[in-house]
Amino acid sequence: MTKEVIDLRSALELLESIPGQMVHTDVEVDPSAELAGVYRYVGAGGTVARPTKTGPAMTFENVKGHPGAKVVIGLLASRKRVGYLLNSKPEKLGFMMRDAVKNAIAPVVVDKAKAQCQEVVHLATDEGFDIRKLIPAPTNTPEDAGPYVTLGMCYASDVETGESDVTIHRLCLQSKDEISMFFTPGARHLGAFREKAEALGKPLPISISIGVDPAIEIASCFEPPTTPLGFNELSIAGAIRGKAVELAPCVTIDENCIANAEYVIEGELLVGARVREDQNSNTGKAMPEFPGYTGP
């Protein structure tokens, strides 16, 4: 591919140039259950016997309650599409990932002037602030605990060593200024950072970058022992692209974020704070898992 992918926008431009890889709709869609339901038929052919069909990625350009915002879904839903986005043959993706780990390129911090993600800033202290109105997070099924961000790049650092890493966690919007973050039992990278900070009685600053280069989304899924604790997985994305991922200092916390993200949420993981994900909906469920079931 001749088109260089450096962020989400250039990734979408690349897919636009390839027949059958991207579709759009400007018909208003409700982010609560309807959006995911529409894409279920566009992207996977509906409820069919496996293997499901492989459809295009889709951009919803008219999301109810979120004027001016867009939601992209299905970006990484096929190995072939990931191959296009990472400039690799689909059957060679695993080899490319292996090589990227061996040839990691550490991220760099750039001046705030280059932080495209900070062109518009909303503060929790602003009158009328409500994260639920700012982020068009879908509620995928009527049983979901609430609206979820499912591809937020969560970035934090070890409070003692300063080592940083990025991982994906499911994030449920709970109130105007509160998000719950699910940690799988067992110390993953950010889980270890959180446990250490909490043991010291310290909140953990964290940035959540949404809408980034797909190489970052793929790289963030690595786990020990391939990438041991202290290994910043943004360096894998750097190796995939052949240049360092650019970070920028956050506005309100002592942490960095991905400089060209479409959205960045800044906050802290509070000491001892635990909530039920479904505290607002009382569905007794979380959200659908990738095999298709919905668990408690």
Rank of each mutant, 00 (worst) to 15 (best):
K243W: 15
Q174C: 04
M181K: 09
R274K: 11
T25P: 06
N87F: 09
K102F: 01
K114P: 02
K70E: 02
I18M: 09
T226R: 12
R79W: 13
T184M: 14
P249I: 07
Y84S: 04
A248G: 04
K70H: 03
I6K: 15
K64F: 11
S157M: 09
P291L: 05
T167P: 03
A197Y: 04
F95D: 15
T150S: 10
A273C: 05
L200K: 14
E61D: 13
P296V: 12
M153F: 13
I218M: 14
P228V: 02
K176F: 10
P203E: 03
I258D: 00
T150R: 12
I218A: 07
C154L: 11
P67H: 04
E34G: 02
I236W: 13
L200H: 08
C221T: 15
L35S: 03
P214C: 11
H169L: 08
I179G: 00
L8E: 00
G20K: 06
G83W: 06
S88E: 10
F95Q: 15
P224L: 08
K70S: 07
I218E: 04
Y39M: 09
M97Q: 07
T54I: 11
V63K: 01
I179M: 04
L15E: 02
E246N: 01
G43N: 07
T2N: 14
I206W: 01
Q21A: 12
A199Y: 07
Y293I: 11
T150C: 10
Q279L: 15
T59A: 14
R274W: 02
F95W: 13
Q21E: 15
E28D: 05
G152M: 03
I208S: 02
C117V: 13
A192D: 06
K202F: 04
V212K: 02
S207P: 01
H189T: 00
L93R: 05
N103H: 14
D213V: 15
K112Q: 09
V159A: 05
G45T: 05
H169Y: 04
I73A: 08
I210R: 09
T52H: 11
P203H: 09
I73P: 03
V271T: 05
R276C: 00
I210G: 01
E233A: 10
L173H: 02
A259P: 01
L35A: 11
E28G: 07
C172V: 15
V5N: 00
V29L: 09
I131V: 09
M287W: 14
D158Y: 10
R274P: 01
I131L: 08
A69N: 09
T226Q: 12
N103Y: 07
K53G: 05
S10P: 01
T252L: 07
K64Q: 11
F290W: 15
Y148D: 00
S175V: 05
E163K: 15
R132N: 08
